[in-house]
């Protein structure tokens, strides 16, 4: 097929041909089978490419979610390992060990951990219109705790609009969940230096980041800067008590 024909296909598909040329084009489609076949393949490929790149993020989010559900389903299917003849004395040993661990842990009064605090409420981003599909994918990934995917999509969204503080905060949380502490910390610290509704949330999460990194001194220091009016003030005071 000549190059000229492909240029013609593109103009026809993007509706840029003048009326008389459209008529000529459509008559060629009817009468020249090679032309018709090439056009149909071209059209199919253009649609394939458009879909492939436009829906990349949503499609990745779907595939990740699917893999998680599939994995859980198939793990349930596998027969549990046989217990075999587990003699009574083994139970006794197990029980004593459990008791010892219990005593030690009790005496040690363990430090609070990040996992005591990372129960997020479901986020909802899709009311704003515009980049709906990507926002929905981000929302779903985050709510399903697919933080790797969520972080990627938040990154893509922020590449388009870097000023969105809400997305910055969620991206920070996703980064924190996947242990990318440096990036998370710098995002939270930037956010906590701005005058926005997310300011105190950002301070709270930068404290939680230190908690997850087991830097309890830094965590305490940050917690003490959370203002009284902040939503997480009570929770912060609680955590201070446990750490001190």
């Amino acid at each position: 097929m000549e190059d000229q024909n492909y240029i013609l296909f593109e103009s026809y598909l993007s509706k840029e041909l003048p009326q008389d040329e459209i008529i000529a084009f459509e008559s060629r489609l009817k009468n020249e089978s090679d032309f018709n076949q090439a056009f149909n393949t071209y059209k199919e490929l253009a649609s394939f490419l458009e879909h492939k790149f436009e829906n990349e993020a949503a499609s990745t989010a779907f595939q990740n979610n699917l893999k998680t559900i599939s994995k859980t389903h198939f793990e349930k299917q596998k027969p549990a390992k046989k217990v075999g003849h587990f003699k009574l004395w083994k139970y006794a040993v197990a029980a004593s060990i459990a008791l010892l661990i219990g005593i030690f842990t009790f005496n040690d009064s363990p430090n609070p951990t990040f996992s005591d605090y990372n129960n997020y409420e479901a986020i909802s981003l899709t009311v704003r219109g515009g980049q709906d599909e990507l926002l929905k994918a981000a929302e779903d990934a985050f709510n399903n705790k697919n933080f790797i995917t969520a972080e990627i999509i938040f990154g893509q969204l922020l590449a388009k609009d870097n000023s969105n503080k809400e997305l910055q905060l969620y991206r920070g949380i996703a980064l924190l969940e996947i242990d990318k502490f440096d990036e998370a910390d710098s995002l939270f610290s930037r956010l906590s230096n701005t005058q926005s509704v997310y300011k105190s949330k950002a301070i709270w999460y930068s404290a939680l980041s230190k908690l997850k990194q087991k830097d309890f001194a830094a965590c305490l220091e940050i917690l003490k800067t959370i203002p009284k009016y902040a939503e997480d003030y009570k929770e912060a005071q609680n955590l201070i008590n446990k750490l001190e």
């Binding site: 097929m1 190059d3 024909n5 492909y6 240029i7 296909f9 593109e10 076949q37 090439a38 393949t41 071209y42 490929l45 253009a46 490419l49």
Partner: peptide, 13 residues
């Protein structure tokens, strides 16, 4: 763009 999709069309066909 049209020539690249054209090239792809040929490869596929």
């Amino acid at each position: 763009k049209s020539l690249c999709i054209g090239k792809l069309t040929e490869l596929v066909q």
